[in-house]
């Protein structure tokens, strides 16, 4: 039995004026996997993610998320869908006028009838879950470091216990140790909560260690989709340049080859 598809992108075309960003993009994301979207800058990774989360509309094509066709969805359905996912923006996008705790609590307050006490407990749990100290809840976003902002934003994305998590470059701007811890956290959350994760990333460490499947965007198309082995078989110039340069060869591919030999 093939696994359940959480997201399906079919023949998506995106144009901004005369500029074509996507010209027939196809991919799908299976349940419970960590799915990476790769590509050079300007290849339309962020645009594709924005189309999945209904911030932009594709010019043509169809995107299905958790069973809803987001290119043709009613207001009520859209509102329901929005409660089932969490989004982590590249720079956090925490509401600067609210404290971290209030940021996390906001959706619970708006969308649920939970008591104040229960809400506060939930907020505390989420803060602990992403590895922040309890006192961070009382701070404002401007008082946080880059890494803390990402963690707080992740806690907010997890507030409604979503089934699906979108991450836009989760490890960019973090120090190497922080980035690896963040990777570990994402894997833990996947195991613990059974969520599906879609992430835009450039981080080779993430790609080689936590991403299950990925799509490589280049030349307005998905040039290759699949797990690391499939992707490495591609001879597309971007894949060649990204994965088969001296640095990656030395640091990662040697390791993979060694594993394969065993």
């Amino acid at each position: 039995m093939s696994p359940k598809r959480v997201i399906e992108v079919k023949d998506v075309v995106t144009r901004f004026g005369e500029r074509t960003i996507h010209d027939g993009v196809n991919l799908h994301v299976n349940e419970h996997e960590i799915y990476g979207i790769l590509g050079e800058s300007g290849s339309g990774k962020s645009v594709l993610m924005k189309e999945m989360i209904m911030l932009l509309r594709p010019t043509a094509g169809k995107i299905t998320v958790l069973g809803y066709d987001v290119t043709d969805i009613s207001y009520e359905e859209a509102q329901e869908l929005r409660r089932e996912w969490g989004v982590l923006f590249q720079f956090g996008a925490l509401y600067s006028s609210l404290t971290v705790a209030e940021n996390i609590e906001l959706q619970l307050k708006e969308y649920t009838d939970l008591s104040k006490q229960l809400r506060e407990e939930l907020v505390r749990t989420k803060i602990a879950m992403v590895g922040l100290a309890p006192h961070v809840g009382a701070l404002y976003p401007s008082e946080l470091s880059g890494g803390m902002i990402k963690r707080a934003a992740l806690a907010r994305a997890l507030a409604m216990d979503p089934k699906l998590l979108f991450l836009d470059e989760p490890t960019s701007g973090l120090d190497p140790v922080g980035a690896r811890n963040f990777d570990k956290l994402i894997v833990e959350l996947r195991e613990l909560l059974g969520i599906t994760v879609v992430m835009i990333t450039h981080d080779l460490d993430s790609i080689f260690s936590i991403v299950d499947r990925m799509a490589v965007l280049a030349d307005k198309h998905v040039v290759v989709e699949g797990d690391l082995k499939n992707v490495l078989q591609s001879t597309h110039p971007f894949v060649e340049a990204f994965f088969k340069n001296e640095y990656t060869q030395e640091k990662y591919l040697g390791k993979i080859k060694a594993e394969n030999v065993q």
């Binding site: 911030l55 929005r82 590249q90 996008a93 925490l94 509401y95 600067s96 906001l106 959706q107 969308y111």
Partner: peptide, 17 residues
Amino acid sequence: GAMKITEEIAAMRTMGF
């Protein structure tokens, strides 16, 4: 405008606000 630059408005939209 500042909320737009920091993507707070985009974040609101994804949360259904």
